[in-house]
């Protein structure tokens, strides 16, 4: 009697990271709500562009006013506008689904028991949230550039900066990309904190409510002159820095400072998420 053939030795004890990430991203992107949300985000710059054209130059103040006849301002204006609440909402939604949603459905248990380290699980969930942030911001930026050039037009395909200088298309696109990257950085901070809350609770709504409520509270605190000393700690206090990309020469101080602050929030949120997930019972 011959012994049964030995099973081949296992070379990998865990699933490859690439496959995990692809599975998570597919999982996030196949949710109809994610797709509907991204579709609505693409409409933001179009709606602003139509509004600016209909108002026809009487623009008003701020970045929206600066968009009139100066289409390449549109992507920056749209991203700045969306960063106040809409983009954080998208990120919070993705983060709420990522852990709290799976807990609520009872599907997280399977993931906790699967041959995937907890750290890798958190990384996988975080990258799903990050992909939503990148896609939503990128969509606003790309549609913004197109709508700015096609619907608003003006300024001979160039960008008139807030400083009164004119810069070419290539340079202007570089600046839009810079604002997009900076926005994604801020959203990563929001996402990290949202994931930490998501790991704490099993109700996705709590994540949404705490992130949006937190942002509103930050906004209120930032508006009270007597609480000026809080400004350096509030994530939202640097969120107007995106407009700096429209100045010439380009001042990087505001965006640099808010990116460092976002990094602080991201490390706090990420650390808490990992700590909570490592201790979690399956």
């Amino acid at each position: 009697m011959t012994p049964a053939p030995q099973p081949p030795p296992r070379t990998a004890s865990t699933a490859p990271l690439g496959r995990l990430l692809a599975a998570e991203v597919r999982w996030v992107l196949l949710r109809p709500r994610t797709l509907v949300m991204l579709g609505l985000f693409a409409l933001i710059p179009v709606v602003i562009a139509i509004g600016v054209v209909v108002a026809d130059g009487s623009g008003g103040r701020g970045l929206i006013g600066a968009t009139a006849g100066n289409g390449l301002v549109l992507p920056v204006a749209a991203m700045t506008l969306a960063l106040t609440l809409l983009l954080p909402l998208a990120v919070a939604m993705a983060a709420a689904d990522a852990i709290a949603g799976e807990t609520a459905h009872g599907t997280l248990r399977g993931l906790l028991l699967a041959p995937v380290g907890r750290l890798r699980l958190v990384g996988m969930k975080a990258s799903g949230v990050f992909v939503v942030a990148v896609l939503a911001t990128g969509l606003i930026a790309v549609v913004g550039v197109l709508a700015g050039l096609v619907v608003v037009g003006g300024a001979d395909g160039q960008l008139v900066t807030l400083s009164g200088t004119t810069i070419g298309l290539g340079d202007a696109l570089g600046r839009v990309a810079l604002v997009a990257a900076w926005t994604v950085g801020q959203l990563a901070a929001v996402g990290a904190v949202a994931l930490a809350i998501s790991a704490l609770t099993e109700h996705p709504l709590i994540v949404l409510a705490s992130v949006l409520g937190g942002l509103i509270v930050f906004g209120v605190l930032g508006a009270i002159p007597a609480l000026d000393f809080l400004q350096p700690y509030l994530l939202t206090s640097g969120w107007t820095a995106g407009a700096d990309a429209l100045r010439d020469p380009l001042p990087l101080g505001g965006m640099g400072e808010s990116t460092l602050r976002a990094l602080g929030y991201a490390v706090v949120g990420g650390g808490l998420t990992v700590a909570l997930m490592l201790r979690r019972d399956a």
Binding site: L260, G264, Y265, A266, V267, V268, G269, G270, L272, V274
Partner: peptide, 11 residues
């Protein structure tokens, strides 16, 4: 948890 503390200190 340590990372979260480090982030808070950084802030």
């Amino acid at each position: 948890m340590g990372a979260a503390l480090a982030g808070a200190v950084g802030l």
